[in-house]
Amino acid sequence: MKTYEKIIEKLILICAVTATISVALITLFIFKSGLPVLADYGVFNFIFGTTWSPTNGSYGIFPLIAGTLSVTLGALVIGIPTGLACAVFLAEILPKHWAKAFKSAIELLAGIPSVVYGFFGLVVLVPAIRNFVLPIYKIFHPEASATGFSILAGAVILAIMILPTIVSISENSIAAVPREFKEASLALGANKMETIVRVLIPAAKSGILSSIILGMGRAIGETMAVLLITGNMAKVPSGILDPVATLTGTIAMEMGYASPTHQQALFAVGIILFVIIMLLNIFAQLSMRGMGGSAR
């Protein structure tokens, strides 16, 4: 009886470390496959080289980094205020049962597959940008690309995609602010708005920060949506209506037909992506632990 219990405990322990082993294996295999190119080409040249042309042996991913960063930044500029507004709306303004419905709507947003977002962007957003935004933009920038596949399209779709992350974590941390803080502020004659802006949001700031970091991680790592709507041009962009290629999109698109060296280069792109995401995740985990809340 006792040995049988001991065996089960061992088996369960193995299951518990599966996730950890997976992370180790993922790290190992991504690095193993990509390091040769990084070593041959030089990390500096790889990251700061401005030409990505794998068929000609040029592996400069600066345009891809610029593409990823511009789309991500755009998504954050749109997503943070919207997400915060939704979080405040949920935690402080909506009555309880309505808040519950609104929350499930936000959860639903998280459940939609990214490729569907990409398809929606492709058939609705890209044409809309081409037909309505471009003509105005062209008055100021006559040279602008005319397709609608752009940073803007990617940013808008990504903003919607990272909303659930930002809203749910921010809302939790706003709701976790002790009642006394709120009551103290109201008792001093501050109105609700002042209380929200001056007391609640500052008190919840580490949770909000984590939500933003996690949202950013999600935006950087997102693949299918971006792939369908940013135009996939490996060029450093000069305006928000320029097409860009991202780190993720490039891997997904080129992996299918890549030669062995090209594949290794894509793995090297994966290393860069992996390192960025890991740093963001660890940072987010630490800042969550700092606020004492449970990480989601």
Binding site: F29, F267, I277, I282, A284
Partner: peptide, 29 residues
Amino acid sequence: TLIRFFTEILAGIPSIIFGLFGFAFFVIF
């Protein structure tokens, strides 16, 4: 604490990285 930490980390890894890993490990290796 470490096992938990890595489990959280696993949740944050983007799908394209999983794709690369799956390709290198299951498909090829």
